[in-house]
Design a protein around this nucleic acid. Structure first.
Lengths: 231, 231
DNA sequence: CGTACGCTTGATAACCCTCAAATCTAGTGG
DNA sequence: CCACTAGATTTGAGGGTTATCAAGCGTACG
């Protein structure tokens, strides 16, 4: 059961899918980080969703081909393009696979729903903490070290994700550092106090719907894919 | 193709699904308005999603039974409960039906994504305008009058939806009224200038994925279901 | 060594919240 | 029919959080 498709390298800030475009292919992120954006009239952008290695950023396009937001590479990324018709061939063959695809897109939807809460009700410091907690949990899920990873986002991206300005993101990151919760060396983030950070960010990872195994043993699979994430 | 289930009346402010609950049934809204909530530590609530007549608020629970947010009746509502296993029976029989269900949940996801943008990047006045535009478009979709409908939400609900306080919602509503864009009589809202309101709210209804027919003729089907909405 | 980009910091202002109280409305019971 | 009550709307004053504007600093890279 291998899906045919083509590998493509995408340069930073290059769109993979444009806003309003009608697609005939879905995309799998092989490496790098991909973001989904909407733009306001004044030019500021809002990051709706973040995708890392292993994610399918626009699997939903199989059932809704017109994309209401743009898909952009935040840094150099490698993606694998799969035709909708090949995905649909699979879903028509097996109801189990169809449900797995459906489920995958619904986890994405639950993440968006969580961010509605974060943006609507949490102050700036909590939004940043929440973002870092989510990234940590998602990196852990793909076998990377959850407490020491390379942040693929600059502070402007973090501002786009949290509905803040990069200036204010900078001040909040400093506060988290001074509180002893995180430490940052260039792009490398170390989470010093996971519980404390989760508390500041009111983070409860249930909305990520991680497999049960993941929740119990926290330190499994370390560094298995870590080198692959570097690029 | 009729799904077996049971009709249930739900009193205002009563939970249909509690936060964190694992469900074995999905729900269809027959009448009234239903909201999906998350609660912050300080007790303030964020409304993630709004459902009106004809919507299935937790269809996603078929593939993700653990609900990360509570489902609550905003006013007296009537719902129809359908067992997951009966829905799954259908999706296993027909890939077309499976895809239709998937599509329905993805429209919901696109709405959540739009609200991430609204909450992250639009000022208070635009958030209220956006909410009213969305409600108008969705009422139109089910055959109600889009420019004159009964708002099922009080200002506290609007505050929960837009990430504001009810005090500020009140001031913003007044501004919209004074600008001649809307008029409010108790629960009855009249949209006086749809284009103007859409402009203030940076509203483009593409994310609602309405059927094409709906976009062309705006004044069809008026009042077909309007009486049913009153209750 | 110059340039571009991202990070950092300061001063000021705008937006929205908090707290508080008055008014209005609908529903209830005397 | 009229008090009474609870909930919702409305308005005002003052304060906190975050944005805006502006400039300086660091660092990677050609």
């Amino acid at each position: 059961m291998r899906l045919p498709g083509s590998v493509e390298r995408v340069a930073r800030h290059r769109d993979i899918v444009k806003q309003g475009e009608i697609t005939t292919e879905a995309v799998l992120v092989v490496s790098g980080t991909v973001g989904r954006f909407k733009q306001a009239r004044d030019g500021t952008r809002q990051l709706n969703a973040l995708y890392i290695t292993g994610d399918m950023p626009d699997l939903h396009s199989v059932v809704l081909p017109r994309s209401p937001s743009a898909l952009t590479a935040l840094d150099h990324a490698t993606v694998y393009r799969v035709a909708h018709r090949d995905i649909r061939k699979l879903t028509r063959q097996s109801a189990t696979i169809a449900e797995a695809f459906w489920r995958d897109t619904m986890v994405d939807a639950d993440i968006a729903t969580e961010w509605v809460f974060v943006l609507g009700r949490l102050p700036a410091i909590a939004r940043i903490a929440h973002l870092l907690c989510e990234l940590s949990a998602r990196y852990e899920q793909i076998g990377a070290d959850p407490s020491n990873f390379s942040l693929q986002l600059n502070q402007q991206h973090m501002a786009d994700a949290t509905g803040l300005t990069s200036v204010h993101v900078n001040r909040m990151v400093r506060q988290l550092r001074e509180a002893g919760l995180i430490s940052i060396n260039g792009a490398d983030v170390t989470i010093l106090d996971r519980g404390g950070l989760a508390s500041v960010g009111e983070f409860d990872g249930a909305y990520l719907h991680l497999p049960e195994a993941m929740k119990r043993e926290r330190s499994s699979g370390r560094e298995a894919l870590a080198p692959a994430l570097g690029c």
